[in-house]
Design a protein around this nucleic acid. Structure first.
Lengths: 132, 132
DNA sequence: TTACACATTGTTATAATATAACAACAATTT
DNA sequence: AAATTGTTGTTATATTATAACAATGTGTAA
């Protein structure tokens, strides 16, 4: 088989659902919601998510074990991600800041390691929650 | 009770064990290893870990669900953490780079959110694994 | 010093997150 | 068609983490 260019049915179903959501979704919440579409088992969802994360259509919010669709249409691969997370309302936003991504993509320390990927999560209070 | 200044017995046992390790430890691996010291249940370990993470003695590697002792003796609170992770051998190192931490601690985007905390994980191949 | 508040503990049970293993099926290449 | 490889469905199970609650400890203040 050639390198995959189209999404499989399950991947498309999962992606569609995640893209519709305004907030990060848990795997089992996705599962519950796509069961009517035929995905009955956790593995079907996890496999779709794995692939979607790999190709950058979906990002995993590691600190929350949750998944969001990538808002950045040019994002082909999930190799440089940054998010802001409100610790009160749990609102998550993908940060799209070229200065930041340039800074981090070029970051080198004295370990001799060259980094091919990073994930950054910022925490704080969003505007709304700050004013409560 | 006053704000805690000393670690409880369970917290000390868990911290001692994690500090001895050269690699990140999983909660259940910690549990298994401290059972002879009297911590029998997962919750006892998780509670100790929670507190130790809160006070900055231990950091959680979110992408690995694993815990490492903080190598930075001045780290009182776990609010600005950065790690390098080798995707081949899984070696994890805490990055201690004042430029980086200054840059990230002062980072602001246009969301109106001020960040009080961040966690950054870099991925790549360490020196050893690169030369294999 | 007794009583109160409150944090910590131990314990059992269970929830939530994620993967192993394998047989069946589908698509592509040889 | 045979070989190869990837995807699917399925069952079972592993791994990670928390709920609930009674018991115990510890500092503070009446």
């Amino acid at each position: 088989m050639e390198k995959q260019q189209y999404l499989t049915k399950n991947q498309q179903i999962v992606l569609d659902f995640v893209e519709k959501s305004s907030e990060p979704l848990k795997a089992y919440s996705i599962l519950f919601n796509v069961q009517k579409k035929g995905l009955k088992a956790p593995l079907q969802v996890y496999r779709a998510l794995d692939k979607l994360v790999e190709i950058g259509k979906i990002h995993k919010i590691e600190s929350r074990n949750a998944f969001v669709a990538c808002k950045n249409s040019s994002c082909q691969v999930s190799k440089a991600t940054a998010f802001s997370i409100c610790e009160s309302c749990e609102k998550v936003t993908e940060i799209n800041n070229s200065k930041l991504s340039k800074y981090l993509s070029n970051f080198e320390d004295n370990s001799g390691m060259r980094y091919s990927k990073y994930n950054l999560e910022f925490f704080g209070l969003c505007k709304k929650c700050k004013n409560k």
